[in-house]
Design a protein around this nucleic acid. Structure first.
Length: 505
RNA sequence: GGCGCUAUCGUCUAGGGGUUAGGACGUGAGAUUCUCAAUCUUAAAACCCGGGUUCGAUUCCCGGUAGCGCUACCA
């Protein structure tokens, strides 16, 4: 790691600050990923901070599920904090801000405030009665135990302009008069998000805040808080960079309530996404390497990642009712599956077979993996793609499948004649196979020779055997499949097929 | 309502004062193969609208429209 003092710019410190109110959301996963990329690209520090100041909604189960999701992504972090353990600091800072006269106590009961705000036509900006309440009255009421919220005293009537340069959206400014007197402390004494987050960002010396664009306008409030923090002139605010939001096809922000499990990273994991594929997909939503490449490894993304590459428009995650996954995510997953060494893929596949009830040896899975690798897009596809390798007895299938169809004209099928042909194919296979070595080349040679002797092309020759052996028409290449299955299983299944075919005729 | 942000194929995006507006996914067609898949070729598919500025705007500016976000004692 470079010495922060050796260059003009210190190494960045970024943070990901989820609030544990449910499972890890794909939007959160992307925010985490972008922070991680920024940190690792710049040799900085990644901080994970649980923003759990909302006691009502936070649960331990959610904390666990967020960690689970983050671990699955395979991205690490360097420091870890829990906001709820830092309450003393938040309160102390709130008091300091109050002591400076930059905040005031608002004794309006919470529910009453709600009504007032919603009934007022224009935007609610402040509570003049409370903002102007003399200090002695305020102290007296507080001392008597009357509950109050602490509100920031936003500068008014001064024409004060709040401004910052966003790393993605560029120069931003807003009149302070248009910012409402937001709460710092709730009436139960707990800090709000705005206060806790800024206090912690300052205390943890966060240099860059990279977060969702839904915080863009909140940033003006945060600027005010940073200014109110610390001794004299306040604390220099960190750099801000806001990320375009991930939205559903209906254009609204992805939400757990509205869009269900499709917004949870565990849904992707359970369906058999590879974490690197998922991360690859996430990065392409709102960021571009600008080199026409889309299939990228994590290392490549990390090397290419810059804030300049971040787009400003919201990105649609294109799922439907029929298919919960964006087609591009699925395609990328298939690409990453093919890029994986067989041993690794085989290891990743094992739990999916187990879960489907196939208690099969790793050796068997390893043998099957190369045969299905190009035929699956999600890891879970491996189960239906490979089940016939593991079944003792094939599931019943339509014996008519054993009969090869003539191309282009399935209706003019001479069913009985073709059935007889298929039967001869199977019988021939039964004659040839016992004497054939079960490796690819020998099977290839033996069966092709048999085809010639029957006056058949490869297609009509192989289909009956394939269906007999796999129980269906679409399957991996025949010879490799037969090798994995072994001679005994193949012969047995072909005999069974022969029986089925005879019963048909 | 107020304030802010955004606007290129169906989706993700590149681009940028003069281009045949590029790529990817998906979709259609074809090739190849023992089926499927993979692969290859190919087709259809976009600059929100209106004004400016300019010799020339999709690109710059303004306005409109639309979408999104914030407007909580949620984060």
């Amino acid at each position: 790691m470079p010495d922060p003092n050796s260059s003009g710019t210190p190494t960045p410190r970024v943070r990901f600050a989820p609030s544990p109110t449910g499972f890890l959301h794909v939007g959160s996963a992307r925010t985490f990923t972008f922070n991680w990329l920024y940190a690792r690209h710049n040799h900085g520090t990644m901080v994970l901070r649980l923003d759990d100041t909302d006691l009502e909604r936070n649960t331990e189960a959610s904390v666990q599920s967020i960690f689970e999701g983050l671990r699955w992504l395979g991205l690490d972090w360097d420091e870890e904090y829990k906001q709820s353990e830092r309450l003393a600091l938040h309160r102390k800072q709130a008091e300091a801000i109050f002591a400076k006269g930059l905040a005031y106590r608002d004794f309006t009961p919470a529910h009453a405030a709600d009504e007032e705000h919603s009934s007022s036509q224009g935007a609610w900006l402040s509570n003049p009665g409370m903002r102007e309440l003399p200090r002695e009255d305020s102290d007296r009421r507080a001392a008597s135990g009357e509950p109050f919220a602490l509100r920031f005293r936003v500068p008014r009537g001064e024409g004060r302009i709040l401004q910052f340069v966003d790393g993605v959206y560029g120069a931003q400014q807003k009149l302070a008069d248009e910012v409402e007197d937001f709460a710092l402390l709730r009436s139960d004494g707990m800090p709000t998000y705005h206060l806790a987050s800024c206090v912690d960002d300052a205390d943890l010396r966060i240099s860059h805040i990279i977060r969702g664009q839904d915080h863009l306008t909140n940033t003006f409030k945060h600027l005010l808080i940073f200014e109110a923090l610390g001794e004299g002139v306040g604390v220099a605010p960190p750099h801000f960079a806001h990320l375009p939001l991930l939205v559903a096809p209906d254009g609204t922000k992805l939400s757990k309530r509205k869009h269900g499990p499709v917004v949870s990273v565990t849904t992707y994991r359970d369906a058999g996404f590879l974490p690197q594929a998922f991360v690859n997909f996430l990065c392409l939503l709102g960021w571009s390497p600008k080199n026409d490449r889309e299939f990228l490894s994590l290392d490549e993304i990390r090397d290419l990642f810059t804030l300049e590459g971040v787009n400003r428009a919201n990105a649609v995650v294109n799922f439907t009712d029929d298919d919960p996954f964006d087609a591009k995510a699925v395609w990328l997953n298939a690409e990453h599956i093919r890029a994986l060494p067989v041993e690794e893929l085989s290891r990743d596949l094992q739990p999916f077979f187990e879960q489907a009830g196939f208690h099969v040896s790793p050796e068997k899975v390893a043998a099957v993996t190369p045969l299905i690798r190009e035929r699956i897009k999600l890891l879970r596809d491996a189960v239906p793609a490979a089940d016939f390798f593991f079944l003792d007895k094939l599931a019943p299938y339509d014996p008519a499948e054993l009969i090869p169809l003539k191309k282009g004209d399935p209706k003019k099928q001479d069913l009985t004649g073709d059935a007889a042909l298929a039967l001869r194919v199977l019988q021939t296979a039964l004659e040839v196979l016992p004497a054939t070595t079960f490796d690819h080349d020998s099977l290839d040679k033996a069966l092709r020779e048999a085809a010639v002797s029957l006056g058949l092309k490869a297609g009509p020759m192989f289909q009956p055997i394939r269906v007999a052996v796999c129980g269906r028409k679409n399957a991996p290449p025949l010879f490799e499949t037969m090798v994995v299955l072994g001679r005994e299983v193949c012969l047995e299944r072909i005999r069974e097929a022969e029986k089925n075919l005879q019963s048909l005729a």
